[in-house]
Nucleic acid binder design. Structure first.
Length: 498
DNA sequence: TTTAGGG
DNA sequence: CCCTAAA
């Protein structure tokens, strides 16, 4: 069961492990979208504390903002770390989670927030509210280290009590908790007797006296990346929380360990796949999540909270939602688009002249599962090539495939490339294989023939350079249907002839 | 921004 | 189909 909590600029997501313990999953401070503050507060007023079922959709205070976060929290077990340093010892990271973590990384990677100016007002309330839950005592120590310049990350920290730092002690100062080793695991179900060590690096500045700026947007970005990058980035204020699975308690931070695994940014493809799968299957049930929570096998988990300053000059007027998590927004749109295209594909009409999808939309929402080329499409492509020539992919796309939202010019080119290969392959092996090929993929011979001819007229760029001479000398006489030299040349070219 | 090339 | 370098 999860708890969604928000107040003013802060949004907290907690999960309660048992009756009297809660773990903070995430804390997001929303600073200054340029929404009218009154309105914003009013919106939040009703959302003081909400308890939601896991398998239910969160009820966000601000739809634009929180809804986006919901996606990230669809698998909250990945993010058992709160930005203010509270730790979750029940982190579970199996392989799948690991991947998802990467995705999360990608999703959050660019969520950069501007100045982190404190609205310390909530901090007190937060402490007061959650003090009894006992998650704070997970911190055994909070050590300070060199301050990060420009770090304005404000943490409303409830852990300060356990760490011996009173809330007031960090007010107006800079608090860096560099290492927070935690050797104990509260997971009762941990049959593996593994100990989880947490490590938190971070620089916090708590300055409630400063008024929050309206130009700022969000104070938090999660970034799961290499620890070392943290050092290289001077202007990021970061809290790094590392959860490592190990045999024994680790007394203090081991940088080497942190480098064991590097969370690279997920590829675009993976993001899309992730989003797709997410859309298909809704959030797991509460039971599932609980199980995961109780499982404490966790890999290396880096959560870096970086706060990057942005120039307030950026217009954020009416794009509050877009600001929040751009990737998610994009993903939303993409999903919608894909759905449309999906419907479209149910009717394999090659003359898909329908809604002239806007160019901007068609670009991003490419389908991960490749859409098979239909014969008419191939014909159209061949037609276009014969018309505009090889290489004018955009033109072909514009004039012949304008209605196909998929099929980017690159796709056309790729298809042509494949056609060339196919045609040459068919030609070399002749009839015998041709039949087989026909069985495999019905590429009529006449099409092959056309491709072949086109290949002669409009040679593929690569080929002309190296092998053209060869072709001309050998096959110049015959430009008829069978021109092995041509195909040979092509294939040679494709063989990376250098 | 588009294309070529490689994966 | 994806990604990237080069134009």
């Amino acid at each position: 069961m999860y708890m969604y909590f928000t107040s003013e600029n802060h949004m907290y997501i907690y999960v309660d492990i048992n009756e009297n313990k809660m773990i903070k999953l995430m804390h997001i401070e929303i600073v200054g979208h340029e929404m009218d503050r009154e309105e914003y507060l009013r919106k939040c007023s009703n959302m003081k504390c909400q308890r939601v079922q896991v398998d239910e959709s969160f009820v966000p205070a601000l739809q634009d903002e929180v809804m986006e976060v919901e996606h990230l929290l669809a698998e909250p077990r990945n993010v058992h770390a709160s930005l203010d340093g509270s730790l979750d010892s029940h982190t579970t990271l199996n392989d799948k989670d690991d991947l998802e973590l990467e995705v999360l990384d990608g999703l959050l990677d660019d969520v950069e927030i501007d100045d982190l100016e404190g609205t310390g007002g909530f901090a007190g309330a937060c402490e007061e509210y959650f003090l009894d839950f006992g998650f704070a005592d997970k911190f055994e120590e909070v050590l300070g280290s060199g301050p990060f310049e420009g770090s304005l990350l404000q943490i409303s920290s409830s852990e300060s009590h356990s760490s011996g730092l009173s809330g007031s002690s960090i007010v107006g100062g800079v608090l860096e908790s560099t290492k927070v080793p935690i050797a104990k695991s509260e997971c009762k179900n941990d049959s593996l007797d593994e100990t989880i060590t947490y490590e938190a690096h971070g620089a916090f500045r708590n300055n409630p006296s400063q008024p929050s700026k309206v130009n700022c947007r969000y104070n938090i970005s999660l970034d799961i990346q290499h620890l070392q990058e943290l050092d290289n980035n001077s202007h990021l204020a970061a809290g790094i929380l590392t959860c490592k699975k190990g045999k024994g308690p680790v007394e203090k931070g081991q940088p080497a360990v942190l480098r064991e695994k590097r969370f690279r940014k997920p590829t675009q493809r993976y993001i899309e796949e992730f989003s797709n799968s997410r859309s298909k299957e809704k959030a797991p049930t509460a039971v599932t999540k609980t199980e995961h929570l109780s499982d404490s096998s966790c890999d290396v988990l880096h959560i870096r909270i970086k706060a990057l300053k942005k120039s307030p000059s950026e217009k954020s007027s009416n794009e509050n939602s877009d600001v929040m998590l751009p990737e998610l927004q994009v993903r939303k749109r993409r999903l919608e688009k894909e759905k449309l295209e999906y419907d479209k594909e149910l009717f394999p009409s090659e003359s898909e002249d329908e809604c002239s999808t806007s160019k901007r939309s068609r670009r991003k929402d490419r389908r991960k599962h490749q859409k098979m080329w239909t014969l008419p499409e191939v014909l159209k492509l061949v037609e276009g090539i014969s018309e505009y020539g090889v290489g004018r992919w955009t033109d072909i796309k514009r004039f012949l495939f304008s209605s196909s939202s998929y099929r980017t010019p690159i796709d056309l080119r790729d298809k042509w490339r494949n056609l060339l290969r196919a045609s040459s392959a068919q030609k070399t092996s002749r009839e015998a294989e041709q039949n087989d090929e026909l069985a495999l993929r019905p590429l009529p011979f006449n099409v092959v023939h056309r491709v072949r001819e086109l290949a002669k007229i409009h040679p593929y760029p690569r080929q002309r350079g190296s092998k053209r001479l060869r072709v001309s000398q050998a096959g110049s006489s015959i430009i008829a249907k069978d021109s092995p030299p041509l195909s040979l040349s092509k294939r040679n070219v494709r063989r990376k002839f250098t």
